[in-house]
Amino acid sequence: MYDGWKIIIGIVIFLGLLTVPFFFAGEKATAKPDPKLDTPEIMKLPEAERKCVESKDYMKREHMKVLNDWRDWAVRDGNTIYTSAATGEQYDISLQNTCMKCHSNKKEFCDECHNYTAVNPYCWDCHIEPKEEEI
């Protein structure tokens, strides 16, 4: 192999650079996200009514698609009533006035997973999030 040492040193430096974020972030980067569901608005509801528009699993997996559809239905088609496939109950289609009325804790709910997965949706550039107490 020509220039073997140079190549090996190069590979070591490359691997070093590649892994540097993991060394620096340590535990923080790998801590599991834990979105909180205990907002005052949710806690006020009786135990049996503490339900989202769809099942928890479905929302965890598909909420971005739900929001995409909601947006197109409300803004583009003028259809503003959503019937839950899970319970048959009806909801107003609105991120600000329906979702965030219960989930009034953007920092502990939305941001928790979004930070973990390093996604940065621009919902709140326009939609106003509920005021939260600074902790």
């Binding site: 698609k65 559809d69 088609d77 003028g78 259809n79 503003t80 839950s84």
Partner: peptide, 15 residues
């Protein structure tokens, strides 16, 4: 994507 919950949305009767 087109199949998922196609019938789940309605116009507000008050509209």
């Amino acid at each position: 994507r087109g199949r998922a919950e196609a019938s789940a949305v309605l116009r507000d009767p008050k509209a």
